[in-house]
């Protein structure tokens, strides 16, 4: 028996919108820790790891570990039927081949339940090693989204370089080149508007902009984004989910042949 009641149902709606472009089908894993997902895109270039901790739910019952295979576009279709202020409850019985999403309006005058068929998905979990990153950049998520969108109108790849000067996003294409430098800026009115760069050593890596743009679908989940870079490792683009957990996107670099 599984019953997870999330008062801020809009978070789950935003999570689905953030990952459904990258991943078609995925197993949601439910355990005492929380509601989680790990999945790669079909070409195995990007990986998404989601965690919504059990403490973040108003009610969290998960009698035994359960893995539920879902088509994310179908799940998104159902969650779009929930109002932004609705409370969402996810329910499943042991051994059942369906999951139920219950939507309650804030004043309890409308209650809807949507039952979705589950699917069998063969998926392997990858071990993500704890890494010491050479550089960690925290910046406003909207600013990062803007940069990715702007650069993708010029080129297909972005070179992200972190030096003492700041973080530089560069691209090149048929029509020309573009460089955007963001300097560390802690003197802002609100902490979420700051750009903070922690650098152990300079790092420069190349990535496909198509995936970066897809990650920025998570922008509505968090005011800030954290980009962690090490040479020879996938970049981590992390959006924290208020008091509950995170979505982390890992993207494999492009390497000189």
């Amino acid at each position: 028996m599984l019953e997870l009641r999330l008062v801020q149902g809009s978070l789950l709606k935003k999570v689905l919108e953030a990952i459904r472009e990258l991943v078609n089908d995925a197993n949601f894993d439910c355990s005492a820790t929380g509601f989680s997902l790990q999945a790669m895109d079909s070409s195995h270039v990007a990986l998404v790891a989601l965690l919504l901790r059990s403490e973040g739910f108003e009610h969290y019952r998960c009698d035994r570990n359960l893995s539920m295979g879902m088509n994310l576009n179908n799940m998104a279709k159902m969650l779009r039927c929930a109002g932004n202020d609705d409370i969402i409850t996810i329910k499943a019985d042991d051994g059942s081949d369906t999951v139920t999403f219950m939507f309650e309006s804030p004043n309890q005058d409308k209650i809807a339940d949507f039952e979705m068929k589950l699917m069998d998905i063969d998926s392997e979990h990858l071990g993500i090693p704890d890494a010491e990153y050479h550089a960690i950049v925290r910046m406003p998520s909207a600013e990062f989204a803007r940069i990715c969108k702007d650069l993708s109108s010029i080129g297909d790849t972005v070179v992200i370089s972190v030096t003492k000067e700041g973080v530089k996003f560069s691209t090149a294409g048929d029509i020309g080149t573009a460089n955007i430098v963001c300097r560390q800026n802690k003197t802002v009115d609100k902490p979420e508007e700051a750009t903070v760069i922690e650098m152990q050593e300079p790092v420069s890596l190349t990535f496909a902009l198509r995936y970066m743009n897809s990650f920025t679908k998570a922008t509505p989940l968090s005011e800030t984004v954290t980009i962690s870079l090490s040479s020879e490792l996938p970049v981590v683009v992390e959006y924290k989910i208020a008091d509950m957990g995170y979505i982390r996107f890992y993207l494999a670099p492009k390497i000189e042949e």
Binding site: M40, S43, H44, V45, A46, L47, E124, H125, L126, G127, I128, P129, T157, T206, A208, E232, L233, P234, Y250, A252, P253, K254, I255, E256, E257
Partner: peptide, 14 residues
Amino acid sequence: GCKQTTITKFFGRL
């Protein structure tokens, strides 16, 4: 040219 690597090159299967 640059070659796209995959996640499985870096993270092992459990």
